[in-house]
C-alpha cells in the first residue's frame, strides 16, 4: 500500500514537473538546507538554555518564548521543501532505510511535543520560578537535541544509499537529476 501511495504521490503533476526540471531539485534541496540551518540554530539555542549549558544569563522564558513563532515558521518551511524533495522520488525514499529512520525520529519529535509541550514550552516562566530548573526542562532539552541531531545525520545519509527501485514507475520522461 505504501508503494502504491508513493507511486501515486510521485506522479502528481507538480512532482513530474519538478523531476523533469534540471534546476528545481537542487534549488529546493538548497532551500531545505538553508532553512534547516536557521531552524536548527533556534532549536540548538532553546535546547542549550533548557539544559543550562548556554545563554544562562537570560531567563528560560526570555529565550524560549520569542523563538516559538519563528521556530514554527522555520519548521513549516523546512518540511515544505522536504516534501517537495520527497515527491520527486517518493518510491525510492520510502524504501531507503535512512529515510525510514528519519521519519521514525520525526514521529518521536511528536512524542517529545506530547510529553513536554504542556509542562515546559507552554509555561517557560514557571521554569524560572525555582533557582534550580526542574528536571523536565533538562530532559526536554536533551531529548530534543539528540532527536534533531539524529534527524540531520539520517537525512544526510539518505543520499548515500542507491534506491533499489529503477525509474520504471515514473510516469513521465525521467531525467537524471543528479547532474546538471
Amino acid at each position: 500500500m505504501m508503494t502504491a501511495f508513493a507511486i501515486w504521490f510521485q506522479n502528481l503533476p507538480l512532482f513530474i514537473f519538478l523531476r523533469n526540471s534540471t534546476l528545481a531539485f537542487p534549488v529546493i534541496l538548497t532551500l531545505h538546507v538553508l532553512f534547516i540551518s536557521v531552524f536548527g540554530a533556534m532549536i540548538f539555542a532553546t535546547d542549550l538554555r533548557l539544559l543550562g549549558w548556554g545563554l544562562r544569563k537570560y531567563s528560560m522564558a526570555d529565550v524560549i518564548d520569542p523563538l516559538r513563532l519563528p521556530k514554527r515558521v522555520g519548521f513549516v518551511l523546512v518540511v515544505t521543501c522536504g516534501i517537495l524533495v520527497l515527491g520527486t522520488k517518493a518510491e525510492e525514499y520510502f524504501l531507503n532505510p535512512f529515510f525510514q529512520l528519519k521519519i521514525l525520529l520525526l514521529m518521536l519529535v511528536g512524542v517529545h511535543a506530547l510529553l513536554f509541550r504542556g509542562n515546559v514550552y507552554n509555561n517557560a516562566a514557571a521554569l524560572d520560578a525555582t533557582p534550580e530548573p526542574p528536571a523536565r526542562a533538562k530532559l526536554a532539552g536533551a531529548f530534543s537535541l539528540l532527536l534533531w541531531l539524529g534527524i540531520a545525520c539520517a537525512g544526510r545519509s539518505i543520499g548515500y544509499i542507491n534506491g533499489p527501485v529503477g525509474s520504471h514507475h515514473f510516469a513521465a520522461l525521467f531525467s537524471p537529476l543528479t547532474r546538471l
Binding site: 540551518s37 540554530a41 540548538f44 541531531l149
Partner: peptide
C-alpha cells in the same frame, strides 16, 4: 554529518544575531 551540523549551528547562530 559533522560538516552539516557544524555549519548549521554556526551559520544559524550568526543568523539569529542578524535576525
Amino acid at each position: 554529518c559533522f560538516h552539516i551540523v557544524g555549519f548549521a549551528v554556526a551559520i544559524g547562530s550568526i543568523a539569529l544575531v542578524d535576525f
